[in-house]
Simulated scan of single mutants.
Amino acid sequence: MEVIRSKEFTASKAWGAKDIASMNGITTRLHWTDKPYKWHVNDGEEVFAVMDGVVEMLYKENNEIKSAILNTGDIFFASIGTEHVAHPQGQARILVVERAGSV
């Protein structure tokens, strides 16, 4: 049993993570970042929940770049094949649920 205070979590580098669980090939990780990630496509679905902070999520839909501002408590679901990149606005803590080993 463990209680995780997501707002207190930090990492030594952007996108550093705390592994929370691995269940049937699906990982749950808490990330801390203050820098954008990179454009990528996961090899499966991804659930991206902002635990603290604000994140601009850029994603491509029909070859057009779209944007959504995610505040604390907001969730972004990337279906298979969704190209996307997260741009935190300052520090952010994000819970990511995805297939183990995904980008």
Rank of each mutant, 00 (worst) to 15 (best):
M1E: 08
M1H: 06
M1I: 11
E2V: 09
E2L: 15
E2D: 15
V3T: 11
V3Y: 12
V3Q: 10
I4W: 07
R5S: 11
K7I: 10
A11F: 03
K13Q: 11
A14N: 09
W15K: 01
G16T: 00
A17S: 14
A17L: 13
A17Y: 15
K18L: 13
K18A: 02
A21W: 10
A21V: 00
N24H: 08
I26K: 09
I26A: 02
T28F: 14
T28R: 08
L30A: 06
T33L: 07
T33M: 06
D34S: 01
K35H: 00
P36I: 07
P36A: 04
P36Y: 01
Y37W: 14
K38W: 13
W39Y: 09
W39G: 03
W39T: 01
N42R: 01
N42L: 15
D43Q: 09
G44E: 07
E45A: 12
E45M: 06
E45V: 09
E46N: 07
E46Y: 11
E46C: 02
F48V: 00
A49Y: 15
A49S: 15
A49M: 15
V50D: 04
M51G: 13
M51C: 10
M51I: 12
D52Y: 08
G53V: 00
V54F: 05
V54K: 15
V54C: 10
V54T: 13
K60R: 12
K60T: 13
E61H: 04
N63V: 03
E64M: 08
E64P: 12
E64D: 11
E64T: 15
K66H: 13
A68E: 15
I69K: 11
L70R: 01
L70W: 02
G73I: 07
D74M: 02
D74R: 06
F76K: 07
F76G: 10
F76R: 03
F77I: 15
I80A: 12
G81K: 04
E83N: 02
E83Y: 06
H84V: 06
V85C: 13
V85Y: 10
H87I: 09
P88G: 01
P88M: 06
G90L: 00
G90V: 02
Q91F: 02
A92S: 04
A92I: 04
A92E: 03
I94Y: 08
I94R: 08
I94W: 01
I94M: 05
V96A: 09
V96H: 03
V96F: 07
V97H: 06
R99Q: 12
R99G: 07
R99A: 08
G101L: 00
S102V: 03
S102Q: 07
V103E: 00
